Amino acid sequence: MSLFDDEVPKKKPVHEIGSDLSQLSVDELNNRISLLKEEIERLEAARSEKSASKSAAESFFRR
């Protein structure tokens, strides 16, 4: 074990859309579901921010 192991960024598990799920355990499937739910929340928040910015810009330029 290296002295610098703590400095290496930990990689999040990745899920590839359409990948084979037959070899995954129930825990692994639950982890992937959690990751995907978090990603959906992140995407929805970004969409909301962009929609608000777009609405503000449209409102400003309609004057």
Rank of each mutant, 00 (worst) to 15 (best):
S22I: 07
R47E: 10
N30L: 08
E58M: 10
K50S: 09
E16D: 09
E28P: 04
A56G: 15
P13Y: 13
S25F: 01
L3D: 04
K37M: 05
D5M: 09
A45D: 11
I17E: 04
K37D: 03
E7C: 11
E39K: 06
N31G: 13
S22M: 04
D5P: 03
L35P: 08
N31M: 14
V14K: 03
L43M: 14
L3A: 04
A52L: 14
G18C: 08
P9R: 14
L35Q: 05
I40V: 08
Q23M: 06
N30K: 10
K12R: 07
V8I: 03
H15Y: 01
A57L: 12
S34G: 02
V26M: 07
I33H: 10
R47L: 12
N31L: 15
E44L: 09
A56S: 14
V14S: 01
E28T: 08
V14H: 02
S22P: 05
G18T: 10
E39S: 13
S25H: 00
S25T: 15
A52N: 14
V14E: 09
S55R: 14
F4R: 12
P13M: 11
R42K: 12
E28M: 12
I17T: 09
S59A: 10
S53C: 13
I17F: 06
S51P: 01
D6N: 09
K11M: 02
E16Q: 12
V26S: 10
E39L: 02
K11Q: 13
K11E: 08
E44A: 12
N30R: 09
N30F: 04
V8E: 06
R42W: 09
Q23R: 14
S48I: 02
K54F: 11
E44V: 11
E58W: 08
S19A: 06
S53E: 15
I33V: 11
V26R: 07
R63I: 11
M1C: 05
S25Q: 03
E41N: 13
S22Y: 07
E28K: 04
A57D: 10
K50N: 05
L24F: 13
K11Y: 04
I17H: 12
E38K: 15
R42M: 07
S53W: 07
L43R: 14
L35C: 00
K12I: 01
S53L: 12
L3W: 08
L36P: 04
L21V: 01
D20L: 02
A57I: 07
F61Q: 00
P13D: 12
S48E: 14
I33S: 15
E16T: 14
R32S: 05
R32L: 11
R63K: 05
L35V: 02
R62W: 10
L29Y: 00
F60L: 01
V26P: 03
P13F: 06
E7G: 12
H15E: 02
N31C: 12
S2P: 10
E39F: 08
L36S: 09
R47Q: 05
S25V: 03
K54M: 04
S2L: 02
E16W: 01
S2K: 01
F4A: 15
A45C: 06
P13G: 13
L43Q: 12
K12S: 04
